[in-house]
Design a protein around this nucleic acid. Sequence first.
RNA 1: GCACCCGUAGCUCAGCUGGAUAGAGUACUUGGCUUCGAACCAAGGGGUCGUAGGUUCGAAUCCUGCCGGGUGCACCA
Length: 568
Amino acid sequence: MRQQLEQAIASIIQELFAVEVNVELTRTEPKFGDYATNVALQLSKQLGKAPRDIATEIVAKIADSLGQQVAEVQIAGPGFINLTLTDEVLVSAASSVVPQLHIDQKYVLEYSCPNAFKELHTGHLYNTIVGDTLGRLLEASGAVVYRANFGGDVGLHVAKCLYSIQQQIGQDVTALKAIAEADRPGWLSAAYVAGAKAYEADEAAKLAIATLNGEVYKIHADDDHDSVLAQMYWTCRTWSYDYFKAFYQMIAVAPFDKYYPESATSEPGLAVVKAHIGDVFEESDGAVVYKGEQVGLHTRVFITAKGLPTYEAKDLGVIFLEIGDFLYDQRIILTGNDQSQYMQVVFAALAAIDPELAAKQTHMTNGTIRFGGGQKMSSRLGNVTRAVDVLHEVGAAVTSHDAATGQAITLGAIKYSFLKHRLGGDIAFNITDSVSLEGNSGPYLQYAFARVCSILRKAGCSDEQLAALLDPATQEGSDFTGFESGERLLIRKLGEYTEAVEKSITELLPHHICSYLYDLAQTFNRFYEHNRVLGDARETTRLALLRCYARTLHGGLTLLGIPTPEKM
RNA sequence: GCACCCGUAGCUCAGCUGGAUAGAGUACUUGGCUUCGAACCAAGGGGUCGUAGGUUCGAAUCCUGCCGGGUGCACCA
């Protein structure tokens, strides 16, 4: 709709002044109209005319030729052209359709990426929720999305954990069977913490852990599933992955299509780097490095002097594994923003190896979660907050009638409080504010939805009708007639849904949808406060507005991955 | 030292491909439920958009310097 108008105005200008111009219609305050454009101001210098004179000529033509869509057109201020749309256009714009911007494009989305044998913390929680939502946005816009999860299943952290386990159970693998399923994550985590402590405090332990580290690599190299250590390792690795999967299920995110354990990426990573020593990489002090300075970056080691692949090489390895597995058009990797310069070097090296593949890479970053007082959580400081703790804390603060609804509200509160911020910066997470059911929060929107459902039911809408209404596949009807001013504000706001979603999809920034939905809910609440629906002479039109609102709110929340209970 | 990100109301944040009086939430003050769900709505105070310049008809938005905060810079992940 907007694009159509923009093009129409562009061709009017072409006709009048013989200039090519990109007309941009922006939403404007209701008192000015529905859309505004500043083309007249932009053209002023080029045409050597006063902006208002240019606007006058354009406006006359618009009134002439766009009468079907534009009810009113005015010039305001220094030369803005303000358009007021006809009611018919407003109605047709108010659909909860998601623009199909990525039809049949294949995306690999890599996010979450926890290390096996370790606990999921708040950073994983944030990253996972954002990654999941980006996936939903891409899928809704027609893309095929493969979700990949790349995590460390080898390395010092694993050895520390195994060391502590050996201290506890010796060589008795069967002792692992005694640990109840529910206790496994906590038990592993405790083992890691104990192992890490021993590593710091005890020289003998440090040595033993270093040896274990090498042995774990050997388990992979030999594909060993029989030795005592191997049995211990594989058992605990499985526990770890089971724990991740259970957690993802608990926070209701889409399952991952594939896990790429770090152990599987070493070999392909090493191979790629070694194949390009000389033309891309060079040897330096026994290590293989990429000299980033040549492209304005810094030098990084890809293979250590001992011949081991670093994270850099493994990251290259996973890129090649994923293109082999999925033949993607685009790959998006989401990590903490502390990795942004690191990733630039990896991508620069990749660009030197395979420019075409490098062009398909996008690195997106999320900031750090900070808790009250701006205090950063870190495992080193011992104040790291586990992801499950956040769930429990928020869950405890939610009061609800039944468990399922309580869980929905908990997830809504957490997800929304993460997603509403522009992606990239650090965010302050305040448990009290996030569960607060007032203001710009997930529960506010959930409540708004439950409320409109309740009204629709009262108006005679059966469960089946409601379900059909909320189903995106259902064709939207429109029994609207002309609007009163309050109704018009609501239908106008409903029409902005598609634009907000489009913005979120093209920029891969979910927060635009959050802002929009909050705005929408507020607009509705204002409308509802001042206008009677049931039993009113305008009931038919107003109920149609309510249905459209319910559908839009539901669609938006679902797109974000936020549960939409119909009662709460 | 070099590089990247950030600095908007007391607090938490939108707005940033330049455009009309800089917006929300929260907190504070006040008003509105015998009437469709008040987890709501309405009203009020609260700002030199870090700072100094520059570009422009026009800057929170673009450029430069400075101040303040965060992060990253060779064999960890």
